[in-house]
Design a binder for these strands. Sequence first.
DNA 1: TCGTGTATTCGTCAACTAACGAACACCTGG
DNA 2: CCAGGTGTTCGTTAGTTGACGAATACACGA
Lengths: 107, 107
Amino acid sequence: MKPLFHPRVEDLDLSTILHACADPTRLRLLADINAEPGKTCGTFKTELSKSTLSAHFKVLRESGLIRQDLGPGNSRLNWPRTAEVHSRFPDVISAILKSTTRGSGWS
Amino acid sequence: MKPLFHPRVEDLDLSTILHACADPTRLRLLADINAEPGKTCGTFKTELSKSTLSAHFKVLRESGLIRQDLGPGNSRLNWPRTAEVHSRFPDVISAILKSTTRGSGWS
DNA sequence: TCGTGTATTCGTCAACTAACGAACACCTGG
DNA sequence: CCAGGTGTTCGTTAGTTGACGAATACACGA
C-alpha cells in the first residue's frame, strides 16, 4: 500500500484547516469521525461517488484533521486528530464540532 | 450610496463563515477589525490592490462576520459581528481569533 | 464646479475546486 | 487463480476564486 501522508503537528496551518472544514460534506465527515472514531470510509452515508468521497478524505487527512490507518482488507480506519489540532489551535475544532451537532444545516 | 447587504443572524451559515475565515488575508482583516473596531477600509496595511481588498471585505460582510456602516465622506466603518455570530455558533470565532494572535502565520 | 479621497463595480485572466466515471491497486475468500 | 470488496488515481468538465487595472460613484473641500 502507498504510504498516506500525514502532516506533523508543527506543520498544521490554520487557514488550511479552516478551508478543510468550510465544505459541508467534509464537515459532516469530520463530525461523523469524531462521533464514531475508527469508522472505515465505506460506512459513511452519502450520495457522492466513491472518487469524490476519497478526495474529501484526502483533504481532511492532508489538513491534519484526521488520521487514516490501514484496516482489514484494503480498508482505511479514520481517526480524529482533534487533540493534536487542539494543541496548536485551542478550542477551534471543538467549537466547530459543537456547532455542527446543533441544527446548523444538516439535522 | 448603495445599501450594503448584511445577512440576518438567523441566516448565518457555518460553512460560509468558515470559508470566509479560511483565507489568510481575510483572517488578518477580521483580526484587525476585532482588535480595532470601527477602522475604515483604507487603514489596513496590505500589498493588495484596492479592488481585491474590497472583494475581501465583501466576503466578510456577506458571510456575516463584519458590519460595514457609512462613515465620513465615502468611507466605510468596519465593525465585528462577533457577538452575533457567537449567538449562533458559540466560541467558533473567538477560538479562531485567539489562534491568529498567537504566532500562527503572520507575527 | 472641479478636483481629491474613498470605495465599489466591471471585465479579464489564471488557478483552483468539486464532481464524475473509468481504470487501477490491493487484500481476502472461495 | 479468480471474483468481489475497498479505496485510490487519472483525466475531464463546469463552476468558483483571487488577483488586477480601469471605470465608476459618491461626499467633501477649495
